[in-house]
Design a protein around this nucleic acid. Structure first.
Length: 552
RNA sequence: GGGUCGUUAGCUCAGGCUGGUAGAGCACCUGAUUUUUAAUCAGGUGGCCGCAGGUUCGAGUCCUGCACGACCCA
């Protein structure tokens, strides 16, 4: 008989005893955290407390039992004694790890000092039929962790922390913007024409309108319509959808915030970002710096990669906080191959004057750790000039063909039909982006890449745009927004003609612009990536509760 | 789409190179145990070794294909 059957039998026994295994509610007086925070007072007053939670661990001594139970806030120990509970004590035989229970009793400290509740009475709140995991190692199988995230949340404290932090980040963003007088709005996710970015959309069919619709790839064109309607400062936090590849940094369904401010240009949006980012970091870390690291999992290729990466970072003068080396077992019991690779890395660190730290972590990987310093104003570098520095040619002047040749020389792979915009993007991420560890604005992109930005006031071949990078991750994108309806239409049509973009022309948006849009700054920030950075996660799936996986 | 690695008990992992009756810890069951902290002690149950083929007297192990996942590249 397997565990599932055994637990079902226990439910039958409970029913025989007229005990409902799934009752309706339980009124607790405290959460586990509240008990721990107020324990001295509770012990002194011998106050009766009621708490509820899930049984996590069980230690059975025959006539007494200890359970560790967990609620949303913390874990707390409860203590059952047969001489207090009498015949009701036998009921505990029908309880299992994973069950929800409610207990009432007095708080005390055990001889080892652990805050514990001496149980006077208890009740089953929900029976669990399946065991949920392993008490020591937790749940490691990545696939199971994503497919059954509830088990991940139950087993892995670190995962809980990431998602609690995500929620905190989003509410801090709202707090920051609301205080500045921005209003939060909601615009359509189902759109008859998609726009505001270059991306392949998800298609759907709107039955009652009898028309093909798209899931939005961006909120931009609707939020601008609000600026036209004299809502001066607006923002929207929501899902956008791009029907493209999945990677460590890309999820087809992702969360973005877009912020628009009338009478501002991209310089003011940079200041807004600096202020917002500092606000987040200060509230999360109680400091103006935080740690972010690049991870290299144990596999032969990666082991070579880390040496190359450290070397190139040093060449570029980028400060490395330290190198972390993690072991699966105690160092003495580690596999020889891995140990010798670690030894090699340690020697390398010593030679290069890098500090390193060794630690048993239940996983084999190495980390390059950076200390990100959030001190406005952030560095600003110009897109074209940064590329000119490393390529030796001005991307605005050289013919496209020559640019392609340069890219090939550098070993960058691309398809023959690549657009100039995409090639520039590749060059940039290969040559520049990977070194943008400390907060950096990359500004003034070639006009052709960005139809929705105003041309640069000093050089019409450029536009007033910035992208912001931290930890090598692209966090956001912003413009002085184009508000000249005639020029806007022309640059849309130009792109269509050059086949740089296949986004259909949104006549309705052009018409809206014709009524007049104030000069405005707009800023989009990828929330998932921001959370990755602020929780030091290397995969976007680690900050999305339910990432899509193929069906098995 | 390409490359590398992985898939063994409910969970965490050995075994695989060199083919010969499927292993451990946790969980679970039985018993002991009135302050434990991954409690402890004694005994026990539990496997389509991801799926499908092939090689072989014999495959968890070798070969091929497929599925799913991770990482890297596009």
């Amino acid at each position: 008989m397997d565990e599932y059957e055994i637990r079902k039998k226990k439910i039958e026994k409970l029913m025989d005893l007229k005990i409902n295994p799934y009752p309706y509610s339980f009124l607790r007086t405290h959460t586990s955290r509240e008990i721990k925070e107020n324990c001295e007072k509770l012990i002194e007053n011998k106050e009766e407390v009621k708490i509820a939670g899930r049984i996590y661990l069980e230690r059975d001594f025959g006539k007494t039992k200890f359970y560790t139970i967990a609620d949303s806030y913390d874990k707390i120990q409860v203590y059952f004694r047969k001489d207090i509970l009498n015949e009701k004590y036998e009921l505990l035989d029908l309880f299992d790890i994973g069950d929800f229970i409610g207990v009432s009793g007095e708080v005390f400290k055990t001889k080892t000092g652990e805050i514990t509740i001496l149980v006077k009475d208890f009740v089953l709140l929900a029976k669990s039929l399946r065991p949920f995991g392993e008490k020591y190692h937790g749940l490691r199988d990545v696939e199971l962790r994503y497919r059954q995230r509830y088990l991940d949340l139950l087993n892995n404290e670190k995962v809980r922390e990431v998602f609690l932090k995500r929620s905190k980040i989003v509410s801090l963003i709202r707090e920051f913007l609301d205080k500045k007088g921005f209003i939060e709005v909601e615009t359509p996710i189902l759109q008859p024409i998609y726009g505001g970015a270059f991306a392949t959309p998800f298609k759907t069919f709107y039955e009652s309108l009898n028309k093909e619709f798209y899931l939005r790839i961006s909120d931009e064109l609707y939020l601008k319509r609000l600026l036209i309607g004299n809502l001066e400062k607006v923002y929207e936090i929501g899902k956008d959808f791009r029907n493209e590849g999945i990677s460590r940094f890309h999820s087809p369904e992702f969360t973005q915030i877009e912020i628009y401010q009338s009478y501002a240009d991209y310089h003011q949006m940079m200041e807004l970002f600096e202020e917002l980012f500092l606000f987040l970091v200060k509230n999360l870390y109680n400091d103006d710096k935080f740690v972010y690291s690049e991870k290299f999992y144990y596999d032969e290729e990666n082991q070579k990669e880390i040496f190359l990466r450290i070397k190139e970072l040093k060449e570029k003068g980028i400060e490395i906080n330290k190198i972390n080396i993690y072991y699966w077992k105690e160092k003495d019991n580690e596999e020889k191959e891995y140990l010798s690779l670690c030894e090699e890395l340690i020697n390398f660190c010593k030679e290069n004057g890098l500090t390193y730290k060794e630690e048993k972590k239940g996983e084999r990987y190495w980390e390059i750790e950076f200390l990100i310093k959030v001190k406005p104003p952030f560095r600003r570098i110009k897109f074209t000039e940064s590329l000119k520095e490393v390529l030796g040619v001005d991307i605005l002047e050289v013919p496209f063909e020559l640019l392609k040749e340069k890219a090939k020389e550098l070993g960058i792979d691309f398809k023959e039909g690549i657009t100039k915009t995409k090639l520039l993007d590749k060059l940039f991420s290969f040559l520049i982006q990977r070194y943008l560890i400390q907060p950096t604005f990359v500004i003034d992109h070639p006009k052709i890449t960005t139809p929705l930005a105003k041309p640069h006031r000093e050089n019409p071949l450029l536009c007033e745009r910035f992208e912001v990078f931290v930890g090598g991750i692209e966090l956001g994108n912003a413009f002085s927004e184009e508000n000249d309806p005639i020029r806007q239409k022309e640059s849309f049509l130009e792109l269509l003609k050059l086949k740089e973009d296949e986004t259909p022309l949104d006549e309705d948006f052009i018409q809206a612009l014709e009524y007049g849009m104030p000069p405005s700054g707009g800023l989009g920030i990828g929330i998932d990536r921001l959370v990755m950075l602020l929780t030091n996660q290397s995969s976007i799936r680690e900050v999305i509760l339910f990432p899509q996986l193929k069906e098995k």
